[in-house]
């Protein structure tokens, strides 16, 4: 039986294997994903993002426990960085969550970024789809520890929680562009620390200045102590409130349109590139072009146009 059928029948090992095939770029995985696709689109996808050490994994662990109390099945995709030098990675998010390992209603998968920027791995969307097809009611994506500009998560998740901690910087950090613009919910974790109130106030002040203040959803700032399970129910309630806002306001439609547009365009880009690059790589033309560029006998603009003309029979400018 093919992996997809086994997954739909509840085979955990098959799901784990397909996720590996996806991550390793196996062509066969695409065929399996085609079979699974009609069974996806049901899971509620939550993104958890924030700087390293903010307590994202511990929060994910507690949010998972909260959803389990509500009898929801939970998938978790936890992403950690790949070494740019060796290609290896230490995936340590599980340390905080492994108490759920034996729970049949929870499936945790650690992924390495493998050079992908933006806070997620290239495979994240497809791995989420597998969990969706497995019948997970909620899928939580934990991004790598992010700085200011890794915002891929907002296009992958229905609801994004940005996790901050006290003591990372002054209020100028809070008015910069980037991840602080993408939260549907803001969390000040480690709220027992000095300055937690100040951090929460600064975030709230920043949110009040939001230009589209009249929009229906106003992100709130919540305080949590994930390691002591404080503030978690309130956080999950707020996440659920955002979810129902998405549905009753119709905002879900725009979100899905943006998400699917991007998904399609990225796939198209990737496949076109693979097609063209594979061709010139095999026939030796790639080497010729690089040599030409190094000797400055050719400019890169004409080189690209020539390759496209050869492949697609001419490009219009």
């Amino acid at each position: 039986m093919a992996l997809a059928e086994r997954i739909l029948a509840g085979d955990v090992r098959a799901a784990a294997r397909l996720m590996r095939d996806i991550d390793d770029g196996f062509k066969s995985a695409v065929e399996e994903l085609k079979v699974l696709y009609p069974h996806t689109g049901n899971a509620f996808i939550i993104g958890i993002t924030g700087p390293p050490g903010a307590g994202k994994s511990t929060l994910v662990d507690q949010i998972t426990a909260a959803y389990r109390r509500r009898s929801k099945r939970v998938g978790i995709v936890a992403i950690d960085p790949t070494s740019p030098f060796t290609g290896g990675a230490i995936l340590g998010d599980r340390i905080r969550m492994n108490r759920h390992a034996e729970d049949d209603g929870v499936f945790i998968r650690s992924l390495a970024t493998r050079g992908h920027l933006g806070g997620l791995s290239r495979s994240t969307g497809d791995v989420v789809n597998v969990m969706d097809a497995m019948g997970m009611d909620v899928v939580i994506i934990e991004t790598v520890g992010v700085g200011q500009d890794e915002i891929d998560i907002v296009r992958m998740a229905h609801t994004t929680a940005v996790v901050m901690v006290p003591g990372l910087g002054d209020d100028i950090q809070a008015i910069k562009a980037g991840i602080l613009e993408i939260g549907d919910v803001f969390v000040v974790n480690k709220a027992d620390r000095d300055d937690a109130d100040r951090t929460a106030r600064e975030l709230a002040a920043m949110l009040e200045m939001n230009p589209d203040k009249d929009r229906e959803w106003q992100p709130k700032v919540l305080k949590t102590e994930a390691s002591r399970n404080r503030g978690i129910e309130e956080l999950v309630n707020e996440i659920e409130a955002h979810r129902s806002y998405l549905h009753h306001s119709g905002a879900i439609r725009r979100l899905l349109e943006e998400k699917n547009t991007r998904l399609f365009l990225e796939l198209l880009k990737e496949r076109l590139f693979a097609e063209v690059y594979g061709h010139i790589h095999v026939n030796g033309k790639f080497r010729e072009i690089v040599d030409g560029l190094v000797n400055r006998k050719q400019d890169p603009y004409s080189a690209v146009e020539a390759i496209l003309a050869e492949k697609f029979g001419g490009v219009k400018n």
């Binding site: 790949t82 290609g87 990675a89 995936l91 340590g92 650690s110 390495a112």
Partner: peptide
């Protein structure tokens, strides 16, 4: 990690 493996700890 330094050998290029993905390590789940």
């Amino acid at each position: 990690r330094d050998a290029g493996f993905e390590v789940i700890y």
